[in-house]
Amino acid sequence: MVEEETSPIFIMICLAILIIALVAIILVKSISLIEHLYSYFYKKPLYTHFYVRLKKLSPQHQKFLKQKFVFYTRLSPKQQSFFQHRLITFIAHKSFEGRDDFEITEEVKLYIGATAVMLTFGMRNFLLNRLQKIIIYPDVYFSTINKVQHKGEFNPHLRALVFSWKDFLVGFDTHKDNVNLAIHEFMHVIQINTHNHKNISAVIFSDANKELENLLKQDDLRNKLINSRYFREYAFTNRVEFLAVLVESFIESPQVFKQNFPEFYKKIKEMLNYHFAGY
């Protein structure tokens, strides 16, 4: 039996595929290295927003955002289009469930989704994959996990975020008191979502968070924080709650925060990659 010889063309095609694959791997690694170096010096990703086709909210829903979210009104028209795209995408990727006869409306989804998009707008990865389900009660509810009445909580094992709708709205209706349930609980989601992740936004977030914790170890700064009473006492429960409370203040009264605690303000700004008007 005569053995068939391997076609030279086939060999050339295989070699070409291997070379292309190798070049692609080198290119990806090089871009990753460049971006990490860039983020080291500038504390932000090379890029944050890139979309093939932008999804757009209805005029009615755009009006809702302008009425309810000061953050959205501070964005440029181009940034607002990015915000809308992210909001539609976020809502489509999450399940919303009402409890105790609470009705999930489009307004409920917009309110919740816009909060998440607002906090992750400076991050490239915004879908918060550690979160799958959002459960809403009309009022405070009994937590089967902690066996106490709750206004809100995040369960990372069930990938579920739970809110009392009454208290959710209070956080947005009362401005500049630096207490916002939605922002607080979503920050817990973001903290879990960035833990041990290697994407550039997670790396920047984690690095800035470590630097923030180091600042807190300085006795003079810690005493200044406590004595100022600008942050409520709950902030000093643990480092997780500390960050969530700081971000509440960062969002609701950024100028006061910046004026009184510029070191902490700078780290929160780096963590969220906020380079927008008002921040």
Rank of each mutant, 00 (worst) to 15 (best):
I13M: 07
L212Q: 04
V179R: 15
Q84L: 05
R99T: 04
L215V: 02
S253C: 09
T144N: 14
P59H: 09
I134S: 02
H195W: 13
D100S: 13
S7V: 04
Q218M: 11
E103H: 12
N260D: 10
Y51N: 08
M12H: 07
L22G: 15
F168K: 02
L18E: 08
H275F: 02
Q132K: 15
V140C: 07
T174D: 11
M1C: 06
V240E: 14
Q79L: 14
M118E: 15
F83V: 03
H36I: 08
E241M: 06
I190T: 05
H150F: 09
T144C: 07
G122S: 09
V52P: 00
A182Y: 08
R86K: 12
K269W: 00
L243M: 10
H61R: 12
A208N: 07
Q255F: 11
I200H: 06
L65A: 03
V140T: 14
T120W: 04
L54S: 05
H61S: 12
G122M: 07
I17P: 00
K224C: 03
Y279M: 09
S143K: 02
M187T: 10
R232Y: 04
P8Q: 09
T144E: 15
N238F: 04
L158V: 03
P138F: 11
L119F: 06
M1Y: 08
L57R: 02
S39D: 08
N196S: 11
L246A: 11
V189I: 08
R159G: 11
T120P: 01
D167I: 01
V162F: 12
F205H: 07
R130Q: 12
V245H: 00
S249T: 06
M123C: 09
I204H: 03
V70K: 14
I192E: 14
L87V: 03
S81L: 15
K43L: 09
N178Y: 07
I31E: 04
T89I: 04
